[in-house]
């Protein structure tokens, strides 16, 4: 019988680089808890992290980690998953990484439906570069690069994901651990692309979208017993009505078929386990078409 995975197995001895009070601590804790609950062995998990404060999360999780260039977590994660479909693959990054420089990949990842979980830590600000406008910054937000207030409409990640064909869309709040752990477990369990945006306040540069503010304005779908998670249109409606100040599972398509289950010739056995050699007969078959 396999050994039981404990919190100690999934943690590293790296000291945190985040500011005290950062929302990302809550995301890390929930993720670790979820991994233990799901009993995912650390060596069977790959975390692909982006650039920014959130991208440092891989430093604190004892799985296989690859920390990539800014905005490129999703294609990297797709590569990992296609190479070894036996692995649990997570892409993690911030709102700048995912919805500014990485937006193109985000939309295409949603429509491809590779079995990868994308977890974003959204603080409506650029933290590591010290307080510039983020794609999710509210209109009017006074930030270093918009001292008079942002004049741009914010990106709405949940609606973007829903419109792009994502088959699992949810939002959590780093302060609401119980809900967040359940959301992460559900997202990882989903066979296909799951997008979980986590509101993760920046205590240093965002003095508007604070913990206190979120606690006031957020409401959870759990409170709405009538809400159905299998209706994309309803999910879109709810995301619009609430201006995305909502937490919980918005939408899931349990019948969706993952990308890798549709690729012609792609086998159940992970590619990493397959032989690379060709027989002389196979090779002659290939060349025959060119003679």
């Amino acid at each position: 019988m396999a050994e039981t995975i404990t919190l100690a197995d999934i943690k590293t001895d790296e000291k945190s680089w985040w500011c005290p009070g950062c929302g990302d601590f809550g995301v890390l804790a929930a993720l670790q808890k979820a991994v233990v609950d799901l009993q995912i062995a650390p060596h069977q998990m790959v975390m692909v992290a982006g650039i920014g404060c959130s991208g440092k999360i891989g430093n604190y999780i004892n799985s296989y980690n690859i920390h990539v260039v800014h905005g490129r977590t999703l294609p990297t994660a797709m590569g990992v998953k296609l190479a070894n479909r036996g692995l649990t693959v997570l892409a993690v990054g911030g709102d700048g990484d995912g919805f500014a420089i990485g937006m193109g990949h985000f939309i295409h990842a949603c429509r491809r439906n590779v079995d990868v979980t994308y977890l974003t830590m959204d603080n409506h600000i650029y933290g590591l570069t010290k307080g510039q406008n983020s794609p999710t910054s509210d209109r009017g937000a006074k930030v270093k690069t918009a001292p008079e207030g942002s004049i741009e409409a914010p990106v709405r990640p949940l609606q973007m994901a829903l419109a792009s064909g994502a088959t699992w869309v949810g939002q959590g709040f780093s302060s609401n651990q119980a809900e967040l752990v359940e959301l992460i477990k559900s997202a990882i369990g989903h066979r296909g692309f799951s997008f979980l945006n986590v509101i993760s306040p920046c205590v240093t540069y965002n003095k508007v979208n604070t913990y206190a503010w979120y606690k006031e304005v957020l409401h959870t779908l759990k409170a709405d017993a009538a809400y159905r998670t299998d209706d994309r249109q309803a999910a879109m409606g709810r995301a619009m009505e609430t201006e995305e100040l909502v937490t919980g599972l918005l939408f899931e398509d349990r019948d969706a078929v993952a990308y890798e289950d549709q690729v012609a010739g792609y086998r159940d056995e992970p590619l990493t386990e397959q032989s690379l050699d060709l027989s002389a007969a196979e090779w002659e078959d290939v060349l025959a078409e060119l003679r």
């Binding site: 692909v48 294609p75 990297t76 994660a77 797709m78 590569g79 190479a83 070894n84 010739g265 990493t272």
Partner: peptide, 30 residues
């Protein structure tokens, strides 16, 4: 596909190279 492999048409060349990095990191020749 005859040998279990896959071609991914990506959204741009940045995605293409980073997919290759991910696949190679995981141990497949990409």
């Amino acid at each position: 596909p005859r040998f279990g492999g896959v071609v991914c048409q990506m959204e741009d060349e940045i995605a293409a190279i980073t997919l290759v990095v991910g696949a190679s990191y995981a141990g497949v020749r990409a």
